[in-house]
């Protein structure tokens, strides 16, 4: 009823009628890029405000209250402030790498949205290697963090960059392995096909067939996004702010943006692979548009990530590594083996 797909189809038809095919491709490519960027930006603005409110209320504070109704304009005010800030480059910094690090981070965070289905038919490109693509692209973040840490010529940022490299690469292993269970059941890498297979009642969702896989994925993804309890790359108390110590103004904002975008990416992947994507939990709830279901589930998952952050303390570096290699990795393997047995038996 309120599905967005027909609108985009109509726009496509209109473009086809007035432009040659080559230009249609160009316009639609830039158009979808702009839409994704815009939608994601709005989500980030909302998440920053939401995180501040959630954290505040968990500590029995109000959080931002002065800018607009309950401070909803706070992120915009912050953005305006960041735009006006002086753009500092440390004297001894490796300038080229320093300048490119936030761009790489930003782009890597956004590229994942190419294969995420936001609703029925709302996908930029349904790649037949969807999950593989996302896993590959999101790991790109680690390159940018290392770049930022190295180029800043600052011991705190270098330590932060090194830590994040070690952490993300370690947790990438259980994360990828935890998704293999889903792929084995679905027998496809395409995001759309995986979602289609979870149609119907909510017990068709893969989280009920892959509970272990989901737990491993969610913990590893939290580490992947550098969020508490795995936020040692930017442990404020030890490293000031980690890899982005020397960044100011909009360059810093791009890192910040990428961090919150990653939060949405994690949630979107979790929803797509484990929680039925755009499907309603029950068939009779289908009258609500699919994209609302998807966004709603994503928001719930983002809230859980925030909830983690404001509940748990940070783990030490050695605990972090031990947890990844001694606990998560075996668990991921156990999950794969169990899934294999399950497929063989049923």
């Amino acid at each position: 009823m309120l599905e967005l797909r027909p609108i985009f189809d109509a726009i496509g038809e209109f473009l086809n009628s007035i432009l040659p095919e080559f230009w249609v491709t160009i316009v639609s490519a830039f158009g979808t890029g702009a839409i994704i960027l815009g939608v994601a930006s709005v989500f980030v603005l909302f998440f920053v405000w939401w995180e501040r409110k959630v954290s505040a209320h968990m500590q029995q504070r109000y959080g931002p209250m002065r800018t607009g109704w309950h401070g909803w304009l706070q992120t915009i005010a912050d953005g305006v402030k960041l735009l006006q800030k002086e753009d500092l480059i440390p004297r001894d910094a490796d300038k080229l790498v320093y300048l490119f690090a936030p761009v790489v981070c930003f782009v890597a965070a956004f590229l994942a949205y190419v294969t995420i289905p936001f609703g029925e038919g709302l996908i930029v490109q349904d790649l037949n290697i969807g999950i593989l693509y996302i896993i590959a692209i999101t790991t790109f973040t680690v390159v940018s963090l290392l770049m930022a840490g190295w180029a800043s010529h600052n011991k705190w940022s270098l330590l932060g960059g090194m830590r994040s490299a070690a952490q993300i690469i370690s947790y990438e292993v259980p994360l990828s392995l935890s998704l293999i269970g889903v792929i084995m059941i679905a027998e496809t890498l395409s995001m759309v096909s995986i979602v289609v297979q979870q149609e119907g009642w909510f017990w068709n969702w893969y989280v009920f067939r892959q509970p272990l896989g989901f737990i491993v994925y969610y913990i590893a993804a939290t580490a992947e996004a550098n969020r508490t309890p795995f936020d040692i790359p930017e442990a404020e108390q030890e490293l000031v702010a980690g890899y982005n110590v020397e960044y100011s103004g909009m360059k810093w904002a791009m890192f910040f943006f990428a961090e919150y975008i990653n939060m949405l990416t994690i949630s979107a992947i979790a929803v797509t692979l484990f929680f039925g994507g755009w499907h309603a939990p029950a068939p009779f709830l289908d009258f609500i548009p699919s994209w609302i279901w998807f966004v709603g589930k994503c928001l719930l998952s983002v809230f859980v990530l925030m909830w983690f952050r404001w509940t748990y303390p940070r783990v030490r570096v050695d605990q972090l590594m031990a947890f990844a290699w001694k606990f998560m990795l075996p668990l991921a393997f156990v999950n794969i083996i169990l899934t294999g047995f399950g497929i063989y038996l049923f």
Partner: peptide, 20 residues
């Protein structure tokens, strides 16, 4: 871990003590 989550969840709905 779950207990900690439950505690923060309860606190989420309490009235803030801040005086505006």
């Amino acid at each position: 871990l779950l207990l900690g989550l439950w505690v923060t969840f309860k606190h989420l709905f309490r009235k803030p003590v801040t005086l505006q």
